[in-house]
Nucleic acid binder design. Sequence first.
DNA 1: TTGTAGGCGTTATCAT
DNA 2: ATGATAACGCCTACAA
Lengths: 333, 333
Amino acid sequence: MSTIKDVAKLAEVSVGTVSRYINGYKIKDDNRIKIQQAIERLNFTFNPIARGLRTNKTYSVGVLIPRITDIFCTQVIEGIEEVLNTLNYSIVVCSSNDNVKQETEKIQYLKNKVVDGMIVMPVTSSQLHVKEAVDSGIPVVLVDRLVKGCELDAVICDNVNGAYSAIEMIINKGHRKIGIIAGPQEIYTAQERLNGYLRALNDYNIEVKEEYIVYSEYKKDGGLDAFNQLMSLKDRPTAIFTTNYPITVNSMKVMMEKGLKMGEDISLCGYDQTELFQMFNPPVSVVVQPSKEIGVQAAEILLKRMNGDDSRFPQIQRLKTQLISTDSVKTMF
Amino acid sequence: MSTIKDVAKLAEVSVGTVSRYINGYKIKDDNRIKIQQAIERLNFTFNPIARGLRTNKTYSVGVLIPRITDIFCTQVIEGIEEVLNTLNYSIVVCSSNDNVKQETEKIQYLKNKVVDGMIVMPVTSSQLHVKEAVDSGIPVVLVDRLVKGCELDAVICDNVNGAYSAIEMIINKGHRKIGIIAGPQEIYTAQERLNGYLRALNDYNIEVKEEYIVYSEYKKDGGLDAFNQLMSLKDRPTAIFTTNYPITVNSMKVMMEKGLKMGEDISLCGYDQTELFQMFNPPVSVVVQPSKEIGVQAAEILLKRMNGDDSRFPQIQRLKTQLISTDSVKTMF
DNA sequence: TTGTAGGCGTTATCAT
DNA sequence: ATGATAACGCCTACAA
């Protein structure tokens, strides 16, 4: 590997001149040509590690998500990548595996890796692991979930209205007995989605029945028990709102095993989209989040911060969801 | 941010001693204690960038995949992460977006980022973009696909037998008119899967009909035209083997639109697994690749190379697939 | 516009 | 076992 020094020697200029050339400063034309040729001849590529040491910039950002195999997460990453890659930032990805302890460790880990900034989708909204990263002065943008007691930039969805629109649709199709499988209430999105549910019932003057509200983890096996619990009520709900992807999938799985037909025996509306949902018979009603757009906007805010622009801090973007309404929710009249 | 120098001063030792402490060399007990305290007091974390400059190691590896939203890819990454993260390697992820040009660029990009090694899932098997990276001396492990004319470590699946087992199952259920939607023949896995198909027909003495073999892209919209083409034959196949995930999904989509019932009007066997496939009615028959295991093994080989162990080069691991056989392939008798 | 030289935070070599 | 010091490759005053 040749260095700036080799280039300088071959081009018969000083290293300073070469460095200036590389960084786009103005230099004499004939020097420019000599340097270009030297670079070509030596197959020189400069060492960003050395530059990073000097400039304290690594041109890399950390992305911390609960799980790399989660479609929602990868769609967000796709958005991040789209913005950051063209600017030559690289993306260091790691997963917290839905685990607060790992999340804390990984934040520390990313800090140690000296990323210029990070985008974090927190596992829980309750604690302040994320706070540490902030305190170290590196810009952090939250995604999908806010964290209590943390003033931070964030790009999230309007979960209240997302859930509200789902419940409203279910009500409008004639349902009155509507169950919800809510997520853990330490999680910000889970709180909001439950709120949307409550608010919609309230607005339509439908009594909230405690037993129609069950809770579940937002993890891989979430929803299995919860769905069964709803099904075992004497006075079963006619429709169920499942508030994230795994819960939706697992509820469908249980229905299948029990031989319950979606949209006939029991109505279902889920959260988060995958192409396959629309290929079931009937297709699955879902609240869709603009996942890629979340990534794009998070990256843009992060970029702004990394460039030292502190305007409008903390900047919280709240994106709208979209409702896909299908026959998985039965029309009752 | 405090440095090793600050620690040395506070602990009243030399920087050399601090460095040795950090790197786990033996030092006098009381020095050790003084250093520990100093580190604590100063909240010192050492700078891997500086270390990297000196040691020429960045403790980061690049992972280049066709698309971050592809489940197969993310499962592979999950495996890679599992191995590498505990060893404190970070993973720089980027996508080639199914695009040879981007692949070439991103390989260059990763090289410039000074990763210690890279894991690449190549877009095509025909060209030598990957060769460049190799020539630069950094270890590269291929995943899922081999590249012609490149002697490289690789972890792939036995696609021939994967396809063979699928076709064999279809034959055993009484089908004789079996179509295949094969991938682009520049892609290694696509070649192999077609071979498996041909070999199985041959072994069972079934004539290969040219019009039952159609081709499609291995990309997002792959399979749409191809499936229609098979359906428009006068003498339609009774079963179709779709050779990757998008093709399988899109074929199912077309079937749905046309009102064809899977496993009755037309039988289908796909490639690559997602949990949702098993929740359709009937569930979808698929050839399943051990995707996470691919990642694990690739990471292990890469690790070996990064540690200077050149034994058994080029090491090619060929993993077995598994067949899920369901009623999506009709039993004909 | 250019050259020189010091420094970024480590590691590694040499004496001691 | 430890200290002093020269690298590692680049950037950036400063001086010319």
